[in-house]
Amino acid sequence: MRLALATLRRLLRLGLILLCVAGVSFGLMMASPVDPVNAYLGPLVAQVSPEQRELIASRWGFDAPAPVQFGRWLQQLASGNLGMSHVYDQPVGDVIGQRFMRSLALLGSAWLLSLLLGFALGVLAGAKEHSPLDKIISAYAYVTASTPTFWLALLGVLLFSVYLGWTPVCCAGPVGVSDQAIHLATRLHHLVLPVITLTLLGTASITLHTRARMVALMRSDIATHAFAQGASRADIAWRHGVRHASLPALTLALASLGELFGGSVLIEQVFAYPGLGQATVEAGLRSDVPLLLGITLFTALFVIAGNTLADTLYHVIDPRMRRPRKPAAMSS
């Protein structure tokens, strides 16, 4: 019952946030110099008379006041219709679906790898502060934390694709081959370099935060008590450290779900990887309003999902965050 109520409350909150995001992004679109009619006409714009333009505009309902337009758009949204993308000449829902699946392969694997690798490195480094291993890992983390994504990606392409020729220069598959015909191994081959680049960069912040938590734990009363019980450092890192350090690592990883989309725009541009990031750039440059709004809402949904997941996991890991199981009436 309580669970159902909590879920309902969360869903309600989710709906409200999405409504706010929709309102703000719609307002920004209205205020921007983007003209959907011009964007639709493209190069034909010179051949169309003002009367014809007005005809198109009134057909599309642009003569109505902004709140009415917003209301209509919301109505369509509620029925699951995100509109048509004129850049890709497909329904927006389909474009986002396809692109997202490709981005997921890239971002999902990079995200998971950087979480696991960053956490492991952070625990190893923090278990013994100032040890040689700690110094090596910290130095690596500081260097990569201050490296710009696109710069590393460019270097990667130059070295591995152009100079050594180990990895393909661009795209999610060979040029000119239809999407279905690409073999899995080829897909993976195209994924390797972008995934490694993203992983290398994503690892740094998780490593540093995990390490900081580990160092704090190793200096705490908990560790001293464990040492007094004859525990080794590895024992303390395993039994106490992993739990304690997983809190900041998870917060950071789940909060950066949205950030990964931001980063992916750059990475996907450099590697010409046809994912959601590239679609966003296309939609922005070519004034594809429905697609841009659709991607905005989708990204917001993703960020909210990440935060909700972090909240839920916190309660699983840290018992102090849970509500008391029953009014505390324990006999002593």
Partner: peptide
């Protein structure tokens, strides 16, 4: 000391924060 602590030598620590709050 390192070999014996936890086996022959035991310490009841002063602070209750010696207990791991997550276990």
């Amino acid at each position: 000391k390192r070999a014996l602590r936890g086996r022959e030598l035991a310490l009841i620590p002063q602070s209750l924060s010696a207990l791991d709050p997550l276990a």
